[in-house]
Design a protein around this nucleic acid. Sequence first.
DNA 1: CGTAAGCTTGACAATACTCAATCTCTGTGG
DNA 2: CCACAGAGATTGAGTATTGTCAAGCTTACG
Lengths: 255, 255
Amino acid sequence: MDRWRGTGMDATAQGELLLHRLARFANLSPQEVALVTSLAAKTEEFSAGTELVAEGQSLDTPRLLISGWACRFRMLPDGRRQIFEFILPGDVYGLCLRPQAIALTTAIALTPVCIADAAALGDAIINKSDEYPGLTAACHSTASLEEAYLLNQLMRVGRQTAYERTAHLILELHERLSIVGLADETTVAIPLTQEIMADALGLSVVHLNRTLQQLRRNQLIEFKSGQVRLLQPEQLAQLADFRPPRVSQITRAAA
Amino acid sequence: MDRWRGTGMDATAQGELLLHRLARFANLSPQEVALVTSLAAKTEEFSAGTELVAEGQSLDTPRLLISGWACRFRMLPDGRRQIFEFILPGDVYGLCLRPQAIALTTAIALTPVCIADAAALGDAIINKSDEYPGLTAACHSTASLEEAYLLNQLMRVGRQTAYERTAHLILELHERLSIVGLADETTVAIPLTQEIMADALGLSVVHLNRTLQQLRRNQLIEFKSGQVRLLQPEQLAQLADFRPPRVSQITRAAA
DNA sequence: CGTAAGCTTGACAATACTCAATCTCTGTGG
DNA sequence: CCACAGAGATTGAGTATTGTCAAGCTTACG
């Protein structure tokens, strides 16, 4: 399966994905940059399918996803599954800004993943937010973004057609991966089986397959072996009513 | 329209709905109880359809919904609407535990509403959480609960049939209103038009109407002029896979 | 090569939507 | 007090979308 083909980044670069994202939301001091960079020091590997968070588990061990994809989902008794959100490289999971919270959903690895302990990050923004103002603000913005993605997901699944929602999800994944430097203007690696995408989109595999074919036939995307190329990003964005979320009033001072 | 018929509570009792809910999650000191109770002092009335929060607006003016129903939603350019969540009596909206956040969605009143300024509550839990530990914990639990309801909504709309999801929503509303004392074991007032329920459930009005008829025909609910009676709550819960959310590890000490 | 996972296809069925009409309230004005 | 208007609920008929089942195909990989 070359679905899981790497991005060609070395380990150091991968450890800095999170930094890319956080730096969009706030100016980080050298001390803050050092903290984030140091997270990638000790990492663990897990295979696809590994349970990363169990529903009901205490949310007190924040972790940084260095590489690979994961997701949060829930299942109905008869096996129907709804994927709530994808966890992408550079995302932190298992971190809740509310103390004593417990996980509302299970999270599993969708591909082989590499994970780092982010306890230092959680400690910094929860207990020492005065020392780490930039990190704290950036993590708060990130939390808002996650909520915005959840609302997007609800909008897709509740009110958009299969065609629209498939396009919308692809655009959202492209945007999220662009932010951490894992996608260029028109190309992005999406290492998901159609079954997984279908469970995220609330569609059957067969119907998603036909919907993807329709997008290809209409010259809107190319999609093979996990690589997606956006052929007409503007048309896609328009048909899917895709608009990047505005999340925080804090504007980053200077570049 | 007697859809909006009141609950027969007097103003004082209505002001204490929030107290009911918060007291489930933490023991509140007399000082905390006083703060919450005092919120209902000065209130404002708005008619159905009034915009309560605008998308993009700064989330710095928390408000307590004393009576009436509201919702958060988003629309597609062609008019399709998805309701994300309902705001019920005793709910606080416009309060975000993250500083500087902006509203991700618009909120409007669905019925005539009565609203109180909850700035004192926001101030207490954000700036003076040391003095108000019970309130702070309870509000954090409430925030988790709201996320749980959002995930329920996504599960309904993404993977449940019209029949299941309609039953599930009714059960969830019954549970939420029970918590604030606005529903008894089997009866609850749901002052929503079928159009509004349809927009929450991701269904067309016509299909929702037929689905409700099916639930009635199967002797599971009665539903007329805004009053719902659960005839067989256990069967409903089973067919809808309804399970009350577990949200926090903090257990309230004693009753 | 053989296997297994994932993708694709065809045929058919079920679910859900649209359109248009009718019915039922409830409040309003004469 | 009644006719009327308007919002909301209901119904029927026809259509579109999406799901199910079952089979074949492709690809990666041992």
